[in-house]
């Protein structure tokens, strides 16, 4: 009871704090200097239509490399924690049913295609490597739901994960050698603004990020699904 009252009191205090922030908030009418720089220079320097993508992949590319590393570490730790002391025997689940089976065979390729579309067009439309990777992993989740014991290509997932990670760093090094710095996208020609093959290395890098994120989410999902009791 005392605990609940303390929590409630803390929430009221925090709520007051938030309320002052929220009531005092006046949206800007002009872009600040950083945003103005991105708005004016993205098109001619980076050549990407989507400014958020230009920031994530090029202006702050090193942060994104770190983010992908954090994701990799998470996937590795989840796998490690769940693998320790896991019983090795394989039981059997009741069959998942005709509807889910047929549906997943129809839907999984389409979901994969949608994911690829999202990350290939990351520099043109809302979307990108992380979103596309999550969509790829949702296809893996559907397959896991359909047949929990069928470990679809664990080695393939690991291969995609490591190869795309290495290729991402190599693409960054290309930028260092052929263009202005590490992860600079101009190691490929910028191309026509708004075309699919434009914005230099951004489609390449975002495709690699998409594959890596998809593989990592899929391996996380399959480690978590192995904890199911059977």
């Amino acid at each position: 009871m005392v605990k609940r009252a303390t929590a409630l009191l803390l929430m009221v205090a925090l709520g007051l704090l938030f309320a002052t922030i929220a009531f005092d908030h006046r949206p800007d009418t002009e872009l600040n200097r950083t945003a103005l720089y991105y708005a004016e220079n993205t098109a001619k320097d980076i050549g990407a239509q989507n400014i958020v993508t230009a920031i994530v992949v090029t202006y702050r590319g090193l942060d994104t490399l770190g983010e992908v590393t954090v994701l990799f570490l998470t996937a590795a730790i989840v796998g490690l924690i769940l693998a320790a002391g896991r019983p090795g025997e394989r039981g059997s689940f009741p069959p998942s049913g005709e509807l889910l089976h047929t549906g997943s065979r129809l839907l999984a390729p389409l979901i994969l295609l949608a994911g690829v579309y999202v990350f290939v067009n990351g520099h043109l439309t809302p979307g990108g490597g992380f979103q596309g990777g999550a969509i790829l992993a949702s296809a893996a989740l559907l397959l896991l739901l359909t047949d929990p014991l069928h470990r679809f290509g664990n080695r393939l997932i690991r291969l995609v994960e490591s190869l795309s990670g290495v290729a991402y760093v190599v693409a960054g090094l290309f930028g260092l050698v052929l263009a202005g710095g590490f992860l600079d996208n101009r190691f490929l020609p910028l191309g026509e603004f708004g075309a699919l093959f434009s914005a230099g290395g951004i489609p390449v890098i975002y495709t690699l990020i998409g594959l890596k994120v998809g593989a990592e989410f899929a391996s996380m999902l399959s480690s978590l699904s192995r904890t199911e009791k059977h």
Partner: peptide
């Protein structure tokens, strides 16, 4: 456009 940085 709005500020792209918070979105990133």
């Amino acid at each position: 456009i709005i500020d792209p940085l918070p979105q990133a």
